[in-house]
Structures are given as structure tokens and as C-alpha cells.
């Protein structure tokens, strides 16, 4: 017989905690999904705007990016939820305010990623598209973006994990996410060591899930423009790939040098 991990029949604290944590986990996933859709929807146009030929368009993009990267998510969240209603008389729903704050914040970081990836597409590609008489839209849509997209994915993966982590802040404005449920359980007397360990574990599993999905997307995107997908193990897996130690394997026999002639350390610097 298999027992669902969310079942209340699990022994001890697990049975007590898991039904609530699963409920919270669903909210956390929803917030992550909502936030990432909003962030990507903002990042693409703003990232392209930041490279516009028109100074005014560029300025709008830069102001947005600097503004949201310059303050912390928590302050933005508080401001949207508690301060803005006083100024505008318009109270946002708490989950909506949360997703909005996360999306705006991560969208600003994402714009920088988009900008960097588009800039890293080699110049020849752009020149070739011009030579083939592509319109600026077609140039971007069929030549530059498909290639830039591959480069965006690894940094986007990191940003999505940052987003997942930032959703824990929604608990502060009483959105019933994973962290909120965990705190509630601890306050009502569950073993806090186990509850917090479960919280961390669930967040870690979600991060890993994001990495797996992004790796899959990266492989598909790379094959669509005729390149090999990512190689080796996931980028954010247990151990990041590391080049071999740059020390030659041949042991150099140590030679006794009279101390007076020992090369000074200064010379080696």
C-alpha cells in the first residue's frame, strides 16, 4: 500500500505537518508560476527596449531596471500592499500584490539577462540578416532571438530559483504559502526542527525541479537552431563542473637551494 506524502496517516509530526505543508506548497508553486510568467513578460520587451536606438525608450527601460533592482523585494512588497492603498485608495488582493511585486522585481533582473543574451549573438548574424533584406522585426524574431534564447536560459534558471526563494516573503503579508504554513505549525506546537527541515527540503526539491525543466527547455531551444544541448549534469546540480586543477601532474624533484639564492616571493607575484 502506498501512502501519499500529503497524507495525515504518516507517523508523528509528519502526519501532523504534511497535509498543511502540501497546501502551502501548492500556493508557493502558484506564486512562483505567476511571478515567473509576469517576470518573463516584462523582461523580454524591457530588455529589448534597453537596447533601442531612441534615447527616450532606453531611458524608460533603464529607470525601471534601476528602480526595481535598487530596492529590496520585501520593501516593494510592503509598499505595494500597505503603502500604495493610502496613496491611490486602491487595495490589491494580497496574493496579487505578492505576485506583482515578485514579477516586477525579477522582471528587472530578467531584462538585464535578455539584454546581455541578445548582445552576445555574434554581429555577423545581424549583418547577414540585413544583407538578406530582413525587416527589423523579422531580423529579431527569426535570427537574433532564437539564438539569444539559448544563452538566456542558464541565468534565467538562477533567476527562477531566486523567485522561488522570494515567494517565502509572501508569508509576511499573510499569504498562506509554504513558509506561512510552516510557521503556523511551529506556533501551534509541532516539532520545529522537523517542520523547518521539511520546509527546506521541499524548497530544495522545487529548485531542483526548476533546474530540470530549464535544462529540458535549453536542450530543445539549442536543437531548434541546430546546436547541441547542454552537456553533462545539471548546472545547479550537486557539484558544478570544474576544470582540472591547473597543476602539471609531473612531480618536480625538489632541489636543495642555498637559502641565500632562494628566489624571493616578490618575484613570483
Amino acid at each position: 500500500m502506498t501512502i501519499s506524502p500529503c497524507s495525515a496517516e504518516l507517523p508523528g509530526t509528519f502526519g501532523e505537518a504534511m497535509p498543511f505543508l502540501c497546501k502551502g506548497a501548492v500556493i508557493t508553486l502558484q506564486a512562483t508560476l505567476g511571478g515567473s510568467v509576469l517576470a518573463i513578460a516584462i523582461a523580454l520587451p524591457v530588455g529589448l527596449m534597453a537596447m533601442s536606438h531612441r534615447g527616450a525608450v532606453r531611458a524608460v527601460a533603464r529607470v525601471y531596471m534601476e528602480f526595481f533592482r535598487g530596492t529590496s523585494v520585501l520593501v516593494q512588497l510592503f509598499w505595494l500592499y500597505y503603502a500604495m492603498p493610502i496613496l491611490t485608495g486602491f487595495q490589491l488582493d494580497k496574493s496579487f500584490a505578492g505576485i506583482l511585486a515578485l514579477g516586477l522585481n525579477l522582471g528587472a533582473y530578467g531584462s538585464e539577462v535578455v539584454r546581455g543574451a541578445v548582445r552576445s549573438v555574434s554581429r555577423g548574424q545581424r549583418e547577414a540578416a540585413i544583407a538578406l533584406n530582413f525587416s527589423p522585426y523579422h531580423r529579431m524574431r527569426y535570427v537574433i532571438l532564437p539564438q539569444a534564447f539559448i544563452g538566456m536560459i542558464p541565468p534565467m534558471n538562477n533567476l527562477l530559483i531566486e523567485l522561488l526563494k522570494a515567494t517565502s516573503l509572501l508569508s509576511v503579508i499573510t499569504v498562506a504559502d509554504l513558509t506561512y504554513q510552516g510557521r503556523l505549525l511551529v506556533n501551534s506546537g509541532s516539532d520545529q526542527l522537523i517542520v523547518f527541515a521539511l520546509l527546506l527540503l521541499i524548497y530544495f526539491l522545487f529548485s531542483y525541479l526548476i533546474t530540470l525543466i530549464m535544462r529540458f527547455v535549453e536542450g530543445r531551444a539549442a536543437r531548434m537552431v541546430g546546436r547541441d544541448g547542454p552537456q553533462g549534469r545539471p548546472r545547479r546540480a550537486w557539484r558544478s563542473p570544474r576544470p582540472r586543477r591547473p597543476v602539471p601532474s609531473v612531480e618536480i624533484p625538489s632541489v636543495e637551494i642555498p637559502s641565500a639564492e632562494t628566489p624571493s616571493v616578490e618575484g613570483a607575484r
Binding site: 526563494k165 513558509t179 520545529q192 557539484r239
Partner: peptide
């Protein structure tokens, strides 16, 4: 040495600061 240290750091990087603060503060 290198594997466990790497694994712990990866774990810390993949989980929210807020929950880690709770662990240090309450546990």
C-alpha cells in the same frame, strides 16, 4: 571533503534565506 561541502552549499543556495533565518533564530 569537497563533495559534502559542495552539497551543503548547493542546498543553502537553493532554499530561502527567510526559512534559514527561522532555523537559526528558533532552532
Amino acid at each position: 571533503v569537497s563533495r559534502p561541502v559542495g552539497a551543503v552549499m548547493e542546498f543553502i543556495r537553493s532554499t530561502p534565506l527567510l526559512v534559514q533565518l527561522f532555523v537559526v533564530y528558533y532552532v
